[in-house]
Structure formats: structure tokens, C-alpha cells
Design a protein around this nucleic acid. Sequence first.
DNA 1: CGTCCACAGGAATGACGGGCGG
DNA 2: CCGCCCGTCATTCCTGTGGACG
Length: 400
Amino acid sequence: MGNSLDDLFKRVLTARIFVNRDILRPDYVPDDLPHRQSQILRLAEILAPVLQGSRPSNIFIYGVPGTGKTAVTKHILKKIGSEGRNVGVSLNIAFINCKHDDTNYRVLADLCEAVGERIPFTGLSTSEVLKRFINLADASNRSMFVVLDEVDSLVKKTGDKVLYDLTRINNQLSRAKVSIIGITNDLKFTEYLDPRVRSSLGEEELVFPPYNASELEDILKKRSEGAFHGGVLGGEVIKLCAALAAKEHGDARRALDLLRVAGEVAERGGDIKVTEEHVRKAQREVEKDRVVEVIRTMPLHSKLLILSLHLLERRKGGGGITGEVYEVYTSVTKRFGVEALTQRRVSDLINELDMLGIANARVVSKGRYGRTKIVRLSISDRNLRDAFQEDPRMVAYLGK
DNA sequence: CGTCCACAGGAATGACGGGCGG
DNA sequence: CCGCCCGTCATTCCTGTGGACG
């Protein structure tokens, strides 16, 4: 063991693959964002008035994941922030990831933090936190940008109450000014909104189209310049990463991930070049890591449900409808000696699995024979086994 | 063309653990 | 310490519905 570890360290140290792999990480904001020039200009145009002391319009930014929405926004805010310092205008900027902070309370708490007060992460009433934020923001007497990244997940979970409060905030401020930038992956998102919120929040709209394969290629080329040593990338490596990601709805994050992991695979193997074979390995690895991690940290009943889906699929060689799934699930819980959840709850869990990409659920109508949902797992047996690894009872049911 | 299946999924409600200010 | 409010998970009860069958 020690020996092979030594070997590995040695291989990693001698393999000269990366110069700076962080450049390929999803949260890295490059100075140059290829194929987003028009969005950058447009956004800058909308936000620039802040430098003259007026309040920029609120904006909605739409686009599927990995189209550079967040990167462009961060990029511009950074630029505006530094330009502001040059001309003596200081700004408050709150960047909130609503996927992570997906309750009204946490969003408001984050806003308070952005203007300089820590708020206990539970305990106060939401309206109290809002009040505090308004006072603090006003006292700071600055213009403020509130970026709500992935705001759709917030609204779907808790409704548009906070958004409504935020849009009205300017009326209650005498000195400070607040502009809201909402970023969403969901193109039909505004349908969920109260019309008043929709109109005041969507004063401006900006759409980020997905990248096509050749645009992804440009992005990867640009980033790989700083990330890799010269000449380590095999001829078609970038092309392949771009093509694979283009198939996945033009997700640049995905493409960068692939490229980075491919480099890491090569490094671990002590290879001096990154090849297409490494990319294919990386693709399997990226997928596996995601799935295994998600399942491993799930609560018991979700795991039991996944197990049930697996058993059902093996028994009848295909996806099952809700009724069948629930039947298998109840018998599984019995054998595990735990109480079954209600069908209503299980239906929510199924939807959760669908959103996470672990299962595939779609409603179908079988006419006379009812309206139901067909559910099937969308992960490989191998990954499932790895995810259940630390739970011997589950593994036993997987058989073989 | 209406019926009616087998659910989907919304609304109301409750149990629970946790932090606050006083 | 108490009373209050929070978010989360779960249950109960419910209304809504696409389309094959008759």
C-alpha cells in the first residue's frame, strides 16, 4: 500500500500536466468570456447608470445551466465595482445562491450580512430580518446590487414573497437604492410570479443561449492555455470534451469539468499527455461521483425507494408505474422493519429523484386505465452498488 | 361523446428540533 | 428558563385530469 502510494505521489509530481487547474473549476471567473460579448455589453449598459448615482433597472437573466450567466454577472459587477472606486462611488453587492439558500429567511439573512451585520441563522421572524436589512441598507447610503442566482428554485420552494418585498424595498429607502438581478435556469420561470413582481423585476431581460460545440471549443481552448502545460493536450481532446458537453445542452461547466478530470486521470496514471481515452474515463468518473455522492447522503426512505425501483426494474425489465413502485416499496420497508411513508410522500420523493437525475419520471395517461407516472432509474447498476457500499443490507438486495 | 380509472399534486395541518430575546 | 418563530418532514384530505373504452 505504502509503496503504491509513494508511486502515485511520484507520478503526480513528475507528470507535468497542469500549470493551474483552478482555472478549469466552475467558480473561476475568467477575464475573457468568449461568445458572450453581446450579453456583456448589454448588461453593462443596463447597470452602468449606477456610476452616476441613479438606480439601474432590475433584470432577469435567463439561460440553461452552464451558459455563463453567473460568470458574466460576476465579471461585470467586479468591473463596475472597481470603476466605482475610481470615481468615488462605493457599492454594496450581495451575491446569493438561492439553490443553497433556498428560504426567505436565509436570503434576507445573507442580505444583512452583505451590508455588514451577521444574523443568527434561525430564531428571528422573517419580517424582523427584513426590517433590519432595510435599516442597515439605508444607513449605508449606497447603491446596492442584489444578485439572486438560481432564483427559480427559491420561488418554487417558498413562493415570490421575498421578491415582492425586495421590489418594494426602494419605496422604504430614503437614501440607498437597490437593484435586483435575478438569474434563472428556467425559461418559463416568470409564469410562477405574481404579475406585479413580474413587471417590476423584469424591467430588463437578458437571454443567454446555449453554446454550440464550436463555441465550447473556443472556451476550452482559451482556458486550457493557462491551465495546462504546453503540448500536453492530445489533438482531439478539446474537440471531444466540447462535443460531449454540447450533447448535454451546451453546458460549459460540464465541458470544463470533463477537461479538468481528464487531466487528473492522466496525471494519476503518470501519463505525459492527455488523450481521448482519458476524456472518456473522465466522463464516467464525473457521472459516477455525482450519483454516488448524492445517493450516499440521502435519507433512508429515499434509499429504500431507489432500491425498490431497482428491484422492480429487474423483475419486469423496465420502468414501473406509481402503484407498482409503491407496492414494492412497502414490502421493502417491511423487510427492513421500518414504517412505510404514505404514497403522497413517496410521490414527492420520486419527483425529487427525477430532479436530481437519478430517476426518470414522466406522467402518462393510460386512458381508461388511469393517469399515472412511469418511473425508471437512470443510473447504472455499478454506480448504484458503489452508492450503497456502506450499507451491507442494501447491497445484499442488489444480488449477483 | 361522456365516463371513469389511477393516480398527480395542491392545501392545511402537525410533530419536531433549534435559536432567539427577554 | 419561557414563549415565540423558524424550516423540515410527514400525514390527511382533497380536487383535477388525459384519453381509451364503451
